[in-house]
Design a protein around this nucleic acid. Structure first.
Lengths: 106, 106
DNA sequence: AATTTGCGAAACCGATTGGTTGCTCATATA
DNA sequence: TATATGAGCAACCAATCGGTTTCGCAAATT
């Protein structure tokens, strides 16, 4: 069972949960109220998000608060940074690379 | 059939293709050589990446060069930016929010 | 003590995914 | 013209996914 951050954020509901939780910790029921789905389905998403350590649990009596582990989001940022370097330079450079390839092939 | 950038980068092979293509445009066969899989499977990944506009095609004779549309990567960056604000501030603030919720509930 | 409430786990189902195989088409080369 | 090569597409398959229903457990409420 492979769980990584990228797979976790692939689902739009999970992205919405992340955005929701980012503001404040919430219980499964409170989260489910924001979506047009059952608590159990939300619970499954929470499990996936927790398994890849994007969320952490915090038991309060019989309630469980889910909290966003913002640090884990940096993992995505880290992967993205390699491309940030590219788009921060001019676009014409990409065209140059293209023509270079063509010349090599000839 | 919903194709978005987040679903596209969920697959590790596709992430590798993106990283590979970012450096220079490549043909499907050239890309497939970098992976332990068939050309057809790579071709499917390329199709998905192209459908969500992360890649663009460029026909050169009977070869097709796939090029990364770096602009599309900014979409991920844009989504991530809402969280960047959070992790750039101190972490203790999250704890404050937590205690606030608890007080409200009481 | 009995009931309600919040929650997770398991079983199940239809839809989707990643991969393979086999095919066709178009371009290049002999 | 005949052949080889690069590539996309369709059919198929096993695995996974998102969701629902059902159940059991533990904490709160009566």
């Amino acid at each position: 069972m492979r769980r990584d951050v990228f797979q976790a954020i692939a689902d739009p509901t999970r992205r919405a949960i992340i955005a929701l939780i980012a503001l404040q910790s919430m219980t499964p029921n409170a989260i489910a109220e924001h979506f047009d789905t059952t608590r159990q389905s939300v619970s499954k998403h929470l499990r996936i998000l927790t398994e890849c350590e994007l969320l952490s649990k915090k038991q309060e009596g019989r309630e469980i608060y889910y909290q966003l582990q913002i640090d884990k989001m940096k993992e995505i940022d880290k992967w993205l940074s390699q491309f940030r370097k590219i788009w921060e330079t001019r676009f014409s450079q990409l065209d140059n690379v293209l023509s270079t390839i063509k010349n090599i092939k000839k």
